[in-house]
C-alpha cells in the first residue's frame, strides 16, 4: 500500500506542477506507444465483454444471433437448471475453503521458513514445486492418489487398518473436497512465496523491538506482522479468488464433473453449453454471471486500493 500511495502522490505533485495545455502532449512517445494496448483493452476486453453480455439476452445457438432477442429467458433457464445450482454450490464450498486454507497454510509455511532455518532454499523449492505443474497434471496425479484401489486407501489398508475407507472421488457428497485437496496442494506453495516476500519486507528493527519487549514470536506475527502485511494479503487474496472462479481444468482432469453432476463447476457449464450443446446464449448467460461474481471480488479490492491511497 505504501509503495502505491507514494507513487500516486508523486503523480499528483507532477500533475499540479504541469501547465494545462501541455499536459496531453507530455510524454507523447509513451502515450503513442501505449495506444495499441489501450485499443486492445477497449476492444478486446471491454468490447467483447459487452458483446457477450448483449448476446446472453438472445437465443443464439451455434452462431451468434443478435436479432433473436429473448430478454431474461436464458437467465431464467440458467437459475432453474439443477446442474448450474450444483455448480454454484460447489464453487462456494471450494472457494471458501480454498481462500481460508491457502492463506492459513501459505502464511504458516512462510512463517516457518522465515525462522532462518537451515536448507531454506530446498524446502522452498519443494513446496513451490507443485505450482510448476499444470492443473491437468495435478488433477491426474490426485486422481490416482485418491483412487481407492491404488492410492491412500489401499496403502493404509495394507498397513493393517483394514476397515479404513477414504474414497472421496466416488462419493458425490464429498467429491468437491477431493478436488479441494488437489487445488490446495497445487496452489499453497505460490501463496507461501508471496507471503515470504512480504515477511522479508518487514523491518528487522520491529522484530528487535518486539524481542526487547518480551513479546512471544506467535503474538508478534499475529498482532504486528500480519497487520503490516495487508497489501501482500490483498494481492494473495485476488490471486486466489481469480483462481477459484476459473477452476475448470482441475475438475475436468480429476472427475470430469462426476460422479453424476456432483463436482460440476460454473466454468465447465459455460464451456459445455457453448460448444457441446451449441447454445451460445445459455453459455453467455452463465459466463455473465461469472463476470458478476468476479466484479463482486474486484470492486472491494479496487475500493480498498484507491480508498487507502486517498486516505494516505
Amino acid at each position: 500500500m505504501s509503495l502505491i500511495s507514494t507513487e500516486t502522490e508523486a503523480m499528483h505533485r507532477q500533475d499540479r506542477g504541469a501547465k494545462k495545455p501541455i499536459r496531453l502532449f507530455r510524454n507523447l512517445n509513451a502515450k503513442v506507444a501505449a495506444l495499441p494496448m489501450i485499443f486492445t483493452a477497449l476492444v478486446i476486453f471491454i468490447g467483447c465483454t459487452l458483446w457477450t453480455i448483449y448476446h446472453s439476452f438472445t437465443k443464439s445457438r451455434l452462431l451468434p444471433a443478435p436479432e433473436k432477442w429473448v430478454g431474461l429467458d436464458q437467465y431464467e433457464r440458467l437459475w432453474s437448471t439443477r446442474r448450474w445450482l450444483v455448480s454454484i454450490e460447489n464453487l462456494v464450498i471450494y472457494g471458501a475453503c480454498t481462500l481460508v486454507l491457502s492463506l492459513v497454510i501459505g502464511f504458516t509455511l512462510a512463517a516457518l521458513l522465515d525462522r532462518k532455518i537451515r536448507g531454506e532454499n530446498i524446502f522452498r523449492t519443494i513446496i513451490l514445486y507443485p505450482f510448476a505443474l499444470s492443473f491437468i497434471v495435478t488433477g491426474l496425479v490426485w486422481q490416482w492418489i485418491l483412487n481407492p484401489e491404488f492410492g491412500i486407501q489401499s496403502i493404509v489398508q495394507s498397513l493393517g487398518w483394514e476397515r479404513f475407507a477414504f474414497d472421496p472421488l466416488n462419493n458425490g457428497q464429498i467429491v468437491i473436497y477431493g478436488i479441494l485437496i488437489a487445488g490446495i496442494w497445487q496452489g499453497s506453495g505460490f501463496i507461501m512465496v508471496i507471503m515470504l516476500a512480504g515477511l522479508r519486507g518487514i523491518d528487522q528493527e520491529i522484530w528487535k523491538a518486539a524481542r526487547v519487549d518480551g513479546i512471544p514470536a506467535w503474538k508478534t506475527y499475529i498482532f504486528i506482522v500480519i497487520p503490516m502485511m495487508k497489501p501482500v494479503f490483498i494481492t494473495a487474496l485476488v490471486m486466489i479468488a481469480s483462481g477459484i472462479i476459473k477452476v475448470y481444468d482441475l475438475v475436468v482432469a480429476q472427475t470430469s464433473g462426476g460422479p453424476g453432476i456432483a463436482s460440476e463447476v460454473p466454468a465447465k457449464y459455460v464451456i459445455e453449453k457453448m460448444f457441446e450443446a451449441q447454445n451460445l446464449g445459455q453459455g453467455f448467460a452463465a459466463s455473465t454471471m461469472m463476470l458478476v461474481s468476479v466484479l463482486v471480488v474486484l470492486i472491494p479490492y479496487i475500493y480498498l486500493q484507491l480508498g487507502g491511497s486517498r486516505r494516505g
Binding site: 458425490g172 462426476g258 453424476g260 453449453k273 450443446a277
Partner: peptide, 19 residues
C-alpha cells in the same frame, strides 16, 4: 433432438444414474 436438448437429457441422466 438439437444438441442443446440432448445435453439437457444427458445432464438429467448422468445425475439420475449416479444419485
Amino acid at each position: 433432438f438439437s444438441p442443446d436438448t440432448q445435453s439437457e437429457i444427458k445432464d438429467l441422466m448422468v445425475e439420475f444414474w449416479n444419485d
